[in-house]
């Protein structure tokens, strides 16, 4: 391996760390707060395409170290991972697991876009598509999590559930990689941190690490409104599904209309040249609102926003929420 020349012995050496961080890029056109430097941390530069590579790699390594998973070729028969996922964690897990010889069964709600389901299959995952959205059942989200837990409980010999919603490795991944990377990349000058909420691993892990370095760093979590359609994100009322959210490291929860996730992502694509996905759009919208609101007091500050993944997987979502994108696409 030679990082300077970017030559690696295998893809796992590309996983992020303080020595090999994902890049941060300053946003120069879409913030509108002179005197404040806001950086986007481009998590799509991870080897498997999203911020979820961090939690997934930590969870696999942990299961492996504890002897909880067995390779498909094992004499005792394989013991695969089963995980509820809206896409990115499953994809990271599936690619890594397949390359390492392990099996993955992904439990996916039916409403997840076809392209994400196909990606999981392309990566070698077995797919379990479930219909858990017949009518809204507030505060539960029991469907895919319940099914994955069921497989792990009813067939212990065949499956183990990493459970990104409860697995401390998810938080640890961010305390040991994302947080330290940001601290080093900003040379300890970071004053504001922005992230969204899925399993809460990013916000809790980075929040804890950054507050330990400097308790004055402000940590913001940007959430969509109830009934939103931003893939992978949760509203505060949907938080019951995760055990990892540590409210004590969050200074403020910022709610943004989910529709703006798509519009703001387009601004990032067209003005900053960043191929941002909808969750990045939502975070940026929240960050800029906070910074514009507090423009006078944030002077000289440095912010970092987590841009979870890029736009490629969400073309259909963009078409649905920004109808004019479809105009002129046919002869």
């Amino acid at each position: 391996m030679d990082r300077d020349k970017r030559v690696y012995d295998d893809v796992f050496q590309l996983l992020p760390s303080v020595e090999n961080p994902t890049p941060i890029v300053r946003l120069n056109k879409t913030l509108g707060v002179p005197g404040f430097d806001l950086y986007a941390k481009l998590e799509w530069m991870n080897p498997f395409g999203s911020v979820k590579d961090r939690a997934a790699s930590f969870m696999i390594r942990d299961l492996e170290a504890r002897g909880e998973i067995r390779k498909k070729a094992d004499d005792a028969g394989g013991r695969a991972m089963v995980e509820p996922t809206s896409g990115n964690t499953g994809l990271s897990l599936a690619v890594m697991a397949s390359a390492m010889g392990y099996g993955v069964r992904a439990v996916v709600p039916d409403k997840v876009p076809l392209s994400k389901k196909a990606l999981l299959k392309m990566a070698g995952a077995e797919l379990d598509v479930i219909n858990d959205s017949l009518c809204p059942a507030p505060g539960l989200g029991e469907g895919s999590i319940g099914i994955a837990k069921s497989h792990a409980k009813a067939q212990r010999d065949k499956y183990v559930m990493p459970n990104q919603y409860e697995n401390e490795q998810n938080v640890r991944a961010h305390m040991e990689t994302t947080g330290p990377e940001i601290w080093k990349q900003t040379e300890g000058r970071i004053t504001h941190f922005f992230a969204s909420l899925g399993t809460a691993g990013t916000i809790t892990g980075c929040g804890r690490y950054l507050k330990q370095q400097n308790p004055k760093i402000k940590v913001y979590v940007v959430v969509p409104n109830e009934g939103h359609d931003v893939p992978g994100l949760r509203t505060p009322s949907e938080l019951a599904t995760t055990n990892l959210f540590d409210r004590s490291v969050v200074d403020e929860i910022v709610e943004v209309d989910g529709e703006l996730a798509f519009r703001t992502a387009l601004e990032l694509i067209r003005q900053e040249g960043l191929l941002a996905g909808p969750s990045s759009g939502l975070i940026h919208e929240g960050a800029r609102r906070i910074l514009q609101r507090d423009a006078a007091s944030v002077q000289g500050g440095v912010g970092v926003s987590i841009f979870c993944d890029d736009a490629f997987k969400y073309v259909n979502s963009f078409l649905k929420h920004v109808p004019e994108l479809a105009e002129g696409t046919e002869a």
């Binding site: 379990d128 479930i130 469907g143 099914i147 069921s150 409980k153």
Partner: peptide, 11 residues
């Protein structure tokens, strides 16, 4: 169940 696959996953 609402999700008719749940029983098969484990009961």
């Amino acid at each position: 169940d609402v999700d008719t696959k749940a029983y098969d996953a484990g009961h």
